[in-house]
Design a protein around this nucleic acid. Structure first.
Lengths: 238, 238
DNA sequence: TTAAGTGTCAAACGGACGTTTGAATCATGC
DNA sequence: GCATGATTCAAACGTCCGTTTGACACTTAA
């Protein structure tokens, strides 16, 4: 007995694993397009061809589904980030040098290249937009999932840029985070403004163009007005 | 999730101008905090101490209110942007030089300094977050209100950077827009990550730190792989 | 005084929301 | 066979949503 589905291709299933992945795929796409508050559970389950109650059975509600969408992509991404950052530290231990470009690459690369994973291009846009999503569900999810590795990145980048004061670091990180998030969010605004055919989904082009530009920004000497407060950081060991 | 109790100090009014401005102020704050879909008209009118129907009387519904919130701040901001960009062009006509830093300053300055206007700090966060808000109401509003001056900025910046190909321009603009929007959105994430007391609401500090960093990014030589497609732009006159 | 116009008000409209329920259906082991 | 736990299903729950209505208050001008 099949119910009438909005999407004809989505046939009912009794495989719980497929139910879960169908829900995650539909939610990923729809959250990316409309934001957390812009989609209803009915739309998501309808798109996935899954019963409304099944979504609550598997994910305990809307926020649980939202969090699961992130976890599926962010956990592997964080592992790659941690691995690449560790490689930077290994290189430092060997040569005594810590290249800011390599640190940038280790942090931004996995986030940009995530769209290369099969079916993950929706997640790239979702994660970029979620960084500016003010809804508490989004903020909670992001903080908990990204923070450990992000804090590690900030720490290592600070050591790679000993010429920068804490105040400098704050604003340069704003530029770095901003550029990364803007490329991920991919609002389509620049394509419209430039009338150009370049796409932010091209992860290798993004890395090729963005890393040197951000590295040049990091290389600018300290701009902090050293009034005692804007103290230069000491080289701390950790 | 959101408190729906009206502010006790908000006494009823019969002055239509005050009703309008109270609604705009409450909407500005609540849209910034929760996004377009995250606030209800009841919460907004309750916070403003205004009757629910009055909001529809004055603004013809929720999207009209959203748009009015933007218009109040963006129209003057665009005038300042246009004025400063024209000053760059005047300088170019006089000296034959077009300074990329000055062009950046003319575009970013008014957007950052907007938080200095009385009561406009909520709008700074709102506009930053709206740039990544995928809801059609937000996108429509933004495109229509910002685009004319934004296109002018892109055009002038391109002329100020004759060493850059169209492809370079695309990615550097992503960095510029990203940094500007990230500072405006002010998610509080960097403060948490750094454990620092620096605030993105400090517009003079923001300009002092961000413009030189972005200018250094613009000064990086072209990274476009010149394969015929990534053509260098010709100096066009308009 | 009266008539029109403007703005506010409480109340209601129909619909969409996230979530829950309890029965039906499935695979599996005895 | 039959019991068990896992999963799906249609239907409903109560609440909140954006918007509309029509009565009422106030100002203005003839």
């Amino acid at each position: 007995m099949q119910s009438s589905d909005p999407i004809p291709s989505a046939a009912p299933t009794h495989d719980p694993a497929e139910t879960r992945s169908r829900l995650l795929d539909a939610a990923e796409q729809l959250f990316a397009e409309h934001g957390f508050n812009g989609v209803s559970m009915r739309t998501i389950t309808g798109t996935a061809g899954v019963n409304l109650a099944a979504a609550h059975y598997h994910f305990q509600g809307k926020e649980g589904l939202y969090r699961a969408v992130f976890e599926r992509r962010v956990v592997p991404m964080n592992e790659e980030r941690a691995r690449l950052l560790q490689a930077c530290l290994d290189e430092e231990a060997r040569t005594g040098q810590l290249d800011p470009s390599a640190v940038l690459d280790a942090f931004i690369g996995p986030a940009i290249r995530i769209s290369a994973a099969p079916g993950a291009d929706n997640f790239r846009r979702l994660s970029g937009r979620a960084s500016a999503d003010p809804s508490p569900e989004a903020r909670r999810t992001i903080y908990e999932l990204y923070d450990t590795v992000a804090a590690r990145f900030v720490d290592i980048l600070a050591r790679a840029c000993p010429h920068l004061a804490q105040e400098d670091l704050f604003w340069r990180l704003a530029c770095i985070y901003g550029a990364m998030m803007y490329v991920r969010a991919d609002s389509g605004r620049l394509q419209q403004l430039l009338g150009s055919e370049y796409s932010m989904a091209d992860s290798s082009a993004a890395m090729h163009h963005i890393i040197p530009v951000l590295a040049a920004g990091l290389a600018v000497p300290s701009l902090a007005k050293s009034r005692g407060k804007g103290k230069r950081r000491s080289s701390r060991g950790s």
